[in-house]
Computed example of a mutant assay.
Amino acid sequence: MKKRWIGLGLISLLMTGCASLGSSPVSEPSITMPLFPGWFDDRKVYYITTDASPVAAAIDKNANFAPRLNDALPPRPKPPELKTVIERIYGFPEGDQPAILPSAPDPIGATSVNRPYSPIWQIYEVRWIATSERRELTSESALFDAEANGWVSITATEMVVNCAVVADAEGNHLPGSMIQGL
């Protein structure tokens, strides 16, 4: 798969590591990572991609290969009562538009009340069938309407990614992070 999702900004994150578990980050080191745009309920959000599986997805996303992410995939068909950590992310492999996310933290940070949000995503590919109807879709409901009208096809992949939503277009971002270029 060609690299089509392009970062729009940069985020500097203070890296504390899971082992520290403290509430205050260390003063060094820092890292700069690309932000990827996405749409959640007609709002532009930004996420980072740190891990992916299978290896081809990790290479494509410039991420860590994390084979255990595939353990998050539920059996198919997924029983409706089965709750899992995995969420869908709808990607447009032809570069048509940013991804569509069905959940995001609200607000971004530790006070989020959006219980369905998870940073573990199974990638669903979206392709336009009716190119004359092509437009930017900015929510999962708009995507499902386009599918119901026969304008797009949505196909589940075996790709799983760890993509945390870290900022939005209004300038909200993870506490302790610094945003450049938004």
Rank of each mutant, 00 (worst) to 15 (best):
R4L: 14
W5P: 06
W5F: 15
G7C: 08
I11E: 11
S12R: 14
S12M: 14
S12L: 14
M15C: 04
M15Y: 06
T16N: 10
T16W: 08
A19H: 11
A19D: 13
A19N: 08
S20Q: 04
L21N: 10
S24V: 00
S24I: 00
S24A: 01
V26C: 05
S27N: 10
E28T: 12
P29N: 12
T32D: 07
T32K: 14
M33I: 00
P34L: 07
L35A: 06
P37M: 00
G38T: 05
W39Y: 05
F40E: 14
D41V: 11
D41M: 13
K44E: 03
V45L: 10
Y46C: 04
T50D: 15
A52F: 06
S53K: 12
V55K: 15
A56W: 10
A57R: 03
A58K: 03
I59G: 06
N62W: 11
A63E: 13
N64A: 15
N64M: 13
F65I: 08
F65R: 08
F65C: 09
A66P: 08
R68V: 10
L69K: 14
L69I: 14
N70Q: 15
D71A: 10
D71F: 09
A72H: 12
A72K: 08
P74V: 00
P75A: 11
P75V: 13
P77I: 08
K78T: 15
K78E: 14
P80C: 07
P80D: 03
E81S: 10
E81G: 05
V85I: 09
R88T: 00
R88I: 00
R88V: 01
G91A: 08
E94Y: 05
D96T: 05
Q97D: 10
Q97P: 09
Q97M: 11
Q97L: 11
A99R: 02
I100P: 01
L101S: 01
P102Y: 02
A104V: 02
D106E: 13
D106F: 04
P107Y: 09
G109C: 08
A110H: 15
S112T: 02
S112N: 05
V113L: 00
V113P: 00
N114L: 12
P116E: 04
Y117C: 09
P119M: 04
W121L: 06
Q122G: 05
Q122I: 02
Q122T: 01
W128P: 03
I129D: 03
S132C: 01
S132E: 05
E133G: 06
R135E: 03
E136I: 15
L137H: 06
L137I: 15
T138Y: 04
S139I: 01
S139A: 03
E140G: 03
S141C: 09
S141A: 11
S141M: 13
A142Q: 11
F144E: 00
A146S: 11
N149P: 08
N149H: 12
G150N: 10
G150K: 04
T155H: 02
E158F: 09
E158H: 08
M159G: 12
V161T: 04
V161L: 07
A164L: 15
V166M: 15
A167I: 08
A169L: 07
G171K: 00
N172E: 07
H173N: 06
L174T: 11
P175S: 01
S177G: 05
S177W: 11
I179L: 06
G181N: 07
L182N: 01
L182A: 01
